[in-house]
Amino acid sequence: MIRTATVEDVPVIHAMIRELADYEKALHEARATEEQLRRALFGEHPAAYAHLAVSDEDGEPVGFALWFLNFSTWRGVHGVYLEDLYVRPERRGGGHGKALLAELARICVERGYGRLEWSVLNWNAPSIAFYESLGARPQDEWTVYRLSGGALAELGGA
Rank of each mutant, 00 (worst) to 15 (best):
I2L: 14
R3P: 13
T4R: 15
T6Y: 11
E8M: 03
E8V: 10
P11D: 09
P11M: 11
V12G: 02
I13V: 02
H14F: 12
A15N: 12
M16L: 10
I17W: 08
I17H: 11
R18Y: 13
E19Y: 11
E19M: 12
L20D: 04
A21C: 02
D22Q: 14
D22A: 15
E24V: 08
K25E: 15
K25L: 12
A26S: 15
L27V: 15
H28D: 15
R31T: 15
R31V: 13
A32S: 08
A32R: 04
T33S: 15
R38P: 07
R39Y: 10
G43M: 01
E44R: 11
H45K: 04
H45G: 08
A48E: 01
Y49G: 06
Y49A: 14
A50D: 02
A50I: 04
H51Q: 13
H51N: 09
V54C: 12
E57N: 13
E57P: 00
E57Q: 10
D58K: 01
E60Q: 00
V62I: 06
V62K: 11
G63N: 04
G63A: 01
G63L: 03
L66Y: 09
L66P: 00
W67M: 04
L69H: 06
S72L: 05
S72N: 06
W74E: 02
W74H: 09
R75N: 15
V77D: 01
V80T: 08
V80D: 03
L82T: 08
E83G: 00
D84E: 06
L85W: 09
L85T: 03
L85M: 07
Y86H: 07
V87T: 07
R88Y: 09
P89Y: 05
E90G: 01
E90C: 01
R91M: 11
R92V: 03
G93Y: 11
H96W: 03
G97T: 05
K98S: 08
K98G: 04
A99I: 09
L100S: 04
L101V: 03
L101K: 12
A102I: 08
E103L: 02
A105P: 04
R106E: 10
R106P: 00
R106Q: 03
R106S: 11
C108R: 12
V109F: 14
E110N: 12
E110C: 09
E110R: 06
R111L: 11
G112A: 02
G112Q: 08
G114P: 01
G114K: 09
L116E: 10
L116T: 02
W118M: 14
S119N: 00
V120M: 05
W123K: 03
N124P: 08
N124S: 04
N124M: 09
A129H: 13
F130G: 06
Y131T: 04
E132F: 05
S133R: 00
G135I: 02
G135T: 05
A136P: 01
R137V: 13
P138K: 08
T143A: 14
V144K: 10
V144W: 05
Y145V: 13
R146W: 02
L147W: 15
S148M: 13
S148E: 06
S148D: 14
G149N: 00
G149K: 12
E154S: 14
E154K: 15
G156M: 14
G156D: 05
G157F: 04
A158K: 13
A158D: 13
A158C: 13
